[in-house]
């Protein structure tokens, strides 16, 4: 079982890195946006005196994880249903769990690499200092919860995709919309209408971005957060609840084939 899962993970990674479109769009796109936003707005600073480029770097990590976990998982599953990957595997003694663990390994490896790349860019291009040692513990649990929640939701949403060619477009609708309302592209969130702020707070992206800002920004930057505090407890609860919702949706909606049989 472990050997089968590792073998799946290996093959998933091989296929991902050999698919240039996936590498460019999933992997380098958040970095490109960071470079653009950071350069355009970089010299400004917020009320708290923190450079905008640093805020973008921290927030963009949430976008990176959405791409490497939610989009990779969602479009990957839709594609595997359509091109016969799942049908082939289902005809072998490999259990479904090994397939999903393999996808999970891919998503974790990609997310780690993506986050490392974004942090490196923040440090080298925008002079972002690395956070103190204690913050890395917080980073670790926010990262794990974010990747798990986004992956599970990606699996669940893949069931709604009827045609794998459209998967990227369909999955990017919630992704892009949530970037705008969750304080990633537009910060602080207090610029949003009150109701939109409330709607955005239902979804995980706002809390992911807020958590990563805590990790990478100085403490005084919390004045620009809603309520003027980091609210790490709420971050943990909301992401945890989304993990559970995602898991339940997966168990209810997962299917091997594209058509109902």
């Amino acid at each position: 079982m472990i050997a089968m899962s590792l073998s799946r993970g290996h093959v998933e990674l091989l296929q991902f890195v050999r698919d240039r479109t996936a590498v460019v769009f999933t992997f380098f796109f958040p970095a490109l946006l960071l470079l653009l936003f950071g350069t355009i707005f970089g010299s400004e600073s917020t009320d708290s005196g923190v450079a905008v480029s640093r805020i973008f770097t921290a927030s963009m990590i949430a976008y990176g994880i959405l791409n490497t976990a939610f989009v990779t998982m969602g479009s990957g599953l839709a594609m595997d249903r359509e091109d016969g990957t799942l049908k082939r595997l289902r005809g072998t003694p490999m259990p479904a769990t090994a397939y999903l663990i393999g996808k999970g390994l891919l998503v974790f490896a990609l997310s780690l690499a993506e986050v490392a790349f974004l942090i490196l860019m923040g440090v080298l291009v925008f002079d972002m200092p690395l956070p103190p040692a204690g913050h890395w513990v917080t980073f670790a649990w926010i990262f794990v919860l974010s990747v798990v929640a986004c992956s599970l939701l990606g699996i669940a949403v893949s069931g709604l995709v009827k045609n794998a060619r459209n998967a990227g477009a369909i999955l990017n609708v919630p992704v892009v919309a949530l970037q705008f309302v969750s304080g990633v592209f537009i910060h602080p969130m207090s610029q949003l209408p009150d109701w939109l702020e409330k709607v955005a707070s239902i979804f995980p992206v706002r809390w992911m971005a807020q958590g990563f800002r805590y990790v990478f920004l100085p403490d005084e930057a919390k004045v620009t957060e809603i309520g003027g505090a980091w609210n790490l407890g709420t971050v943990a609860v909301v992401l945890g609840v989304w993990c559970v919702i995602g898991l339940v949706l997966c168990l209810v909606t997962f299917r091997w084939s594209g058509r109902d049989k």
Partner: peptide, 12 residues
């Protein structure tokens, strides 16, 4: 099982 119309693993 020999599949009829699979198109998978193109990059392997």
């Amino acid at each position: 099982i020999v599949l009829q119309d699979a198109d998978d693993a193109a990059d392997l």
